[in-house]
Design a protein around this nucleic acid. Structure first.
Lengths: 247, 247
DNA sequence: CGTACCGTTGAGCAGGCTCAACCGCTGTGG
DNA sequence: CCACAGCGGTTGAGCCTGCTCAACGGTACG
């Protein structure tokens, strides 16, 4: 998909994308808010060491093992991180949405590959500059710590999803994850599924065929309806939640 | 918590347990060492806000959802974090070894339960005191950030293991993980398996029976020999590595 | 010495994978 | 303009393997 010609401005409830990187995290302690955002000052500071980039869908951002110079934050769109295994199998490690961060390296090298799923707006931060900034800004530093802890919890929840052995349950949990994420971003209504079926399969640890069959099973049981491959709607909420409950 | 009657002193190659909490992490950048330890000064600082605790095996440290006052570090022994699901199924989120940290909360509440697998020596740090300390010590703060990133990568690797569908391969990857961990701790020779078969099953997303069968299959194929349930030895290294390679 | 739990082994079942074919869409080149 | 190839998605048939249920041995502990 060709970005560039149509800037396609869009409104988000908070944190418009031209005020610098935006992030969202959940603090450790129970004081104050449950969800915290970067302050205006922090965003401006990060803006100072970052450059905004617009990319079309299906663009490789970096490959695993390559030298890691940058950390990325998502402003708009969806990114996936993944690892290709020798067998040709592909594990999608995570989907990253607005206000997420990715690209944290290990000993100077990326551990996963990253690719845009939709057209995206990202901020690219030099790793060394970010490190320097964090060392001089304890509040921001703590924010990143919380963000990383949040990411760790998400990874653990992902493990729970993959741990289920029924395909329909995994699919339901996946849809619920997308729905929840959309809610957090202030979008209601039907579930938007930005990724392809095979992305979903690689995320859920299923074959593409099984994802397809699970989707049809959800439809057959009148729990979810699909409008194309990129949109779904829950029609039987109680059944849906029952399926999506961690078993 | 039932303090242990037998303190059971023991020697470790580095970082003896009475000099305060000890941690190990992998930095983001490629400058200097691949693995970094807490400095003596940092350990003493952490010691100032922590208390050492000795616990017997199979002791619950905290339950998910309970109020989180403490963060823990492991000095000796093995801890598991887990979640119990409505079906009675149990997911082991992680095994924690020496120089690991766990108990990072979300909005003041633990997200998993934690239990000692073996007799353990832990350091218990008050969350608020740790936060305060981190805000005033950028180096230590960065260290924790790296540690958390490291934990995130481990969780992602865990997801890869669980994503395999052959039991024998998962078992091999698990044993390799234990072996690698032992190497990092400076222990060579046979693989020590501190956890029970059902712990292993809950970690690998398999039934206990399947773990048992996979172990016997490894033995039947002359790849690994077991001496009891808590010790194994690789006898066919190339076959073992072939199995344990991420498929 | 009984009890309880862990680990092992067996039999049968079920659900997801593999292989294969087919459809619809898109982009390309004759 | 159309033929064709490629790809993503769907559907079907059959196999494979891990789960479930069940029984049993060993061991730790009261």
């Amino acid at each position: 998909m060709n970005e560039g010609s149509t800037p396609q401005r869009h409104l988000r409830s908070e944190a418009s994308s031209d005020e610098g990187p935006s992030l969202r995290a959940i603090p450790f302690g129970k004081n104050g808010e449950d969800v915290v955002h970067l302050s205006r000052r922090q965003r401006l500071q990060l803006a100072g060491i970052s450059t905004q980039v617009h990319l079309p869908a299906r663009m490789i951002l970096y490959r695993e093992e390559s030298a890691a110079q940058w950390v990325f934050t998502v402003s708009r769109g969806v990114v996936k991180t993944f690892r290709d295994l020798p067998s040709g199998r592909r594990h999608v490690t995570a989907f990253l949405f607005a206000d997420d961060v990715f690209g944290l390296a290990e000993s100077g090298h990326y551990v996963n590959s990253a690719q845009s799923v939709t057209p995206v707006t990202l901020y690219r931060l030099r790793l060394d500059a970010l490190t320097e900034l964090l060392l001089h800004d304890p509040e921001l530093h703590m924010f990143f710590l919380c963000k990383l802890a949040h990411e760790l919890r998400r990874s653990q929840r992902h493990r729970i999803v993959v741990g289920r052995r029924d395909a329909i349950g995994r699919m339901a949990m996946f849809l619920r994850m997308l729905e929840q994420r959309a809610h957090e971003d202030g979008r209601r209504g039907g579930i938007e599924i930005p990724m392809t079926r095979s992305d979903t399969a690689n995320y859920l640890g299923l074959s593409a065929e099984t994802v397809s069959r699970a989707s049809r099973a959800l439809e057959r049981n009148r729990i979810v309806t699909f409008a194309g491959v990129h949109a779904a709607k829950v029609v039987d909420r109680s059944q849906f939640e029952k399926l999506a409950a961690a078993v």
